[in-house]
Design a protein around this nucleic acid. Structure first.
Lengths: 344, 344
DNA sequence: GATGCGGCTGTTAGCGGTAACATAACAGAT
DNA sequence: ATCTGTTATGTTACCGCTAACAGCCGCATC
């Protein structure tokens, strides 16, 4: 099952090897490989040929140290598995693609101490910029970010004070807006179903905004249910069942994300519950998944692609007026009523 | 909306700054910060205090150059958005966590030329190892990997010849196995629904194995339908509708992944089609999502967590016998019949 | 023919750490 | 008192590359 380990006698190649193989100085090789400065066509050809033939791969560690430039952008997010960050990443990659910058992802699992460690690790590679989710960070994290001396963009959320720049939506406002819509549609006994969220600050803010708007309409949450871990779709089912059994008079279910909302929708449809007549449903995020459901769940898209794009543009110095720092961009999520809120 | 850009007068800190602040040599500071070698407790205290006070973050670029050691492991995958790789990443992170190694993700979007670029970029940082999906790579990629001088683990698939090590399942066999199960259950008019797959070699191998087993039973595919892009769940619905309309006598639908399978299942349920009586359904991957569906879709889990773990263990040199190279590990996916294959 | 200049190439001196090898101080053994 | 060994610290020489500058050549200019 195992083939013999062939000891590698070749040291790994350096500029010097290419230089010797092509008969020019290391400096000239360096210039050729970076397309920097003037080199005659004939020399360029010779160098490229030698590099290709040897299979030379430049050592960016040495290059970065010498030039004090690192073409890396750290991206720090809480989780890969919840459908929201892949799209942010797409936006970031799209923009960075033709800037020579390269995103590097770090995952925190919603743990502040993990975040601190990831920030430290990232900064120790002296990246050209940092993009990270959320505005809430440990004190030590904040200090590191402030000291870093590179552009830092906090994304997703703008309800708070960024270290440097921020691109996102107001989750508080998003929650409020959804509540207003629901109340306007005539629902009165409204329940909330969501993640246990010691560290999901954005979900928390949405709920706060939601309750605030309810209060203004003279209402309070009729019930609430929380979960953590497991298949979100399944949890959505289970929580929905639990709430509807416990509080049969509830007429609206507000979910903290689309995945559990979808689970709830499937549950209601399977049980033959009239949606949106008997109960209305709404989620949050506008994930692509929803397109495939039997009925379109009401939701609010979180502008994830744009957030990624704009954050990357700030880091890449592509913003109009060349702003690279201290910008706060608030995007407006659009409410999609779908088929699960009745027409007031 | 923008705050003034405060010019950063402080150069970024170096060992020398900490050394001066604590009155010892740079070397001693270095030792303290890496916990390497003997340092007296009093000195250690003084150094740590100074480092903390100044907010010093070591420069790993310089460290890596000097020590010829980089605690990074490149992980190259085709896509972040299909639910399968997050779980692989989890397995990898779990294992690397306490080895001091750090995964760095690169995404290829199923494009060989992107893959080549990502491999080049990764190798230029001289990582301690590389984990990449699939066994099919451009010639240039293969050459780079072979020359890299670090352990390379190709994951997910083992139907082919790895550059170095491989951890995965046989997709060909997986396809065969599912076909046998379906045929044994008495289905005869079987259709395939999947991605357009110029570069999804694993889906292609599953289909090949599937058709091979059908042929052995004297059957051929009754119909086939392909898609690309868009919401997989929605595509699953649409394709299912298309196939069932076009070939009303089809009695089984084999999907190349669970997400479109789930779409198909939802479609059938909504249309009141008897599953698994009138048509049977099966997908591939065993994603968590399925737990939340109204009925459990037949599928085969791809051992993603284990694949990640084992790959990481190889890189980290944690395999029994200290094998670091040239190992091929085949895992056996388990078939989950769910509720969508009738009992033969 | 001296001068200037742009195109091309080479030389030198780091970048900020760490490996490897001194060195110093002091304890206990002889 | 000398030797040995251990612990704690410092010194030196790089790691592989690039910025900055220096040189050389040929050609147009005055």
């Amino acid at each position: 099952m195992t083939k013999p380990v062939v000891p590698d006698f070749r040291r790994t190649l350096t500029l010097r090897d290419v230089s010797e193989a092509s008969g020019v100085s290391e400096m000239t090789v360096s210039r050729v490989l970076r397309n920097r400065g003037d080199v005659s066509d004939s020399t360029r050809e010779r160098v490229l040929e030698a590099a290709r033939r040897l299979g030379y791969v430049p050592n960016k560690i040495a290059g970065a140290l010498a030039s004090q430039r690192v073409n890396l952008v750290g991206v720090i997010i809480p989780s890969l598995s919840n459908m929201v960050f892949p799209e942010v990443m797409t936006g970031i990659s799209d923009v960075l693609e033709d800037t020579g910058l390269q995103p590097v992802v770090g995952v925190t699992n919603y743990l502040p101490e993990r975040e601190e460690a990831v920030i430290y690790e990232m900064l120790s590679w002296r990246p050209s910029g940092l993009i990270l989710a959320g505005l809430e960070h440990s004190e030590a994290s904040q200090a590191m970010l402030a000291q870093a001396g590179v552009p830092v963009v906090e994304i997703m959320d703008i309800d708070g004070t960024p270290v440097d720049s921020a691109v996102g939506i107001s989750h508080r406002r998003a929650g409020r807006q959804m509540a207003e819509e629901i109340v306007a549609a005539g629902y009165r006994r409204i329940a909330f179903l969501g993640t246990q969220m010691p560290n999901d600050h954005r979900a928390k803010k949405r709920l706060a905004g939601f309750e605030e708007a309810l209060a203004r309409a003279g209402l309070t949450l009729a019930d609430r249910e929380f979960y953590s871990g497991g298949s979100a779709l399944l949890k959505g089912r289970e929580m929905t069942e639990a709430v509807l059994k416990r509080s049969p008079d509830v007429d609206f279910l507000y979910y903290s994300n689309d995945m559990i909302g979808a689970g709830g929708l499937l549950y209601c449809l399977a049980e033959g519950i009239d949606v949106p007549g008997r109960v209305g449903l709404a989620g949050f995020n506008g994930v692509e998944l929803l397109d495939g459901l039997p009925r379109r769940l009401a939701t609010m898209d979180a502008c994830r692609l744009d957030i990624g794009r704009l954050a990357a543009e700030i880091i890449a110095g592509k913003r109009p007026d060349g702003i690279v720092s201290g910008e706060i961009i608030e995007l407006s999520p659009t409410l999609q009523r779908g088929d699960t809120i009745r027409n007031g």
